[in-house]
Computed example of a mutant assay.
Amino acid sequence: MTLTARELLDTTTGRLAPDPGTNRLLPLIARGAAGRDTLAALALEQSHVIAADRRSFRHLAERSAAEEPASAPFFEMLAEGEELAGQRLGKFAGACGVDEARAVAYEPLPGCQAYPSYVARLALDGTPADIVLALSANFSAWGGYCATIADALRRHYGFSDEACGFFDFFAEPAPELDQRAREAVQAGLEAGRIDEDLVHRYGRLLQSYETMFWHTLWELEQR
């Protein structure tokens, strides 16, 4: 029986869902136990992730337009989303005490930047429809993390709605992005381009690097 695009997206997300205990930092933030310096590091690391992912998604959109046109709108929307998220990130960073001098002097942590580095690698040589599937599965977990963080920042840290806007943005449902993902995957299925083994590899590595991102920040709390 051939899966539809919706079914394949759902089953892929289920297969690649991370174990709830893998993100050690999230429970600390959720109960207000993470230090503000760690939150500041989260903001600073995200500023580098956002900039890198935006470039990767733009490159994927350009590649897809030539190789798999149905995937291009998905990556175009991701690039636009990163731009919007980046505009909101500054308010969160400011609420964490990050000023321009601190941002300029900050040295990114390798464990946090492995994720965008792998996204850049996929942008260069990954199969667009397969990447759509892998990223969609990863975004499901990321959105849940952001919802938890946004609630905790208001509840325990007294952050304003504006300061929480970065996390609110990713926590909100994105029906248009979901529709573009379905269209990309459906076209990939019809063209016989979907390789589920590759999708799982892409997704497994994305989730592993995502976990590394959070674990690296959690280690700051152990010092």
Rank of each mutant, 00 (worst) to 15 (best):
3 L>Q: 15
3 L>A: 15
13 T>G: 06
15 R>S: 12
17 A>I: 02
18 P>C: 07
21 G>E: 14
24 R>W: 09
26 L>Y: 09
38 T>F: 03
40 A>T: 04
45 E>I: 00
46 Q>H: 15
48 H>C: 05
50 I>Q: 07
54 R>Y: 09
54 R>P: 00
55 R>T: 08
55 R>Y: 04
56 S>Q: 04
59 H>P: 00
66 A>H: 11
73 P>I: 00
80 E>I: 01
86 G>L: 08
89 L>C: 02
94 G>I: 06
98 V>Y: 00
99 D>F: 01
101 A>T: 09
106 Y>S: 04
110 P>G: 03
111 G>S: 08
112 C>N: 09
112 C>I: 03
113 Q>V: 03
116 P>V: 02
117 S>Y: 01
121 R>W: 13
126 G>S: 10
129 A>M: 07
130 D>T: 08
132 V>E: 11
138 N>E: 12
138 N>Y: 07
139 F>I: 13
140 S>F: 09
146 C>I: 04
148 T>K: 11
150 A>Q: 06
150 A>S: 13
154 R>E: 13
161 D>T: 08
162 E>V: 14
167 F>S: 05
169 F>G: 07
177 L>Y: 05
178 D>Q: 13
181 A>R: 08
182 R>D: 12
185 V>K: 07
187 A>H: 12
190 E>F: 02
191 A>S: 15
192 G>D: 10
193 R>M: 11
193 R>T: 13
198 L>R: 15
199 V>S: 07
205 L>Q: 12
206 L>Q: 07
207 Q>R: 14
214 W>R: 02
217 L>F: 10
221 E>C: 10
221 E>A: 09
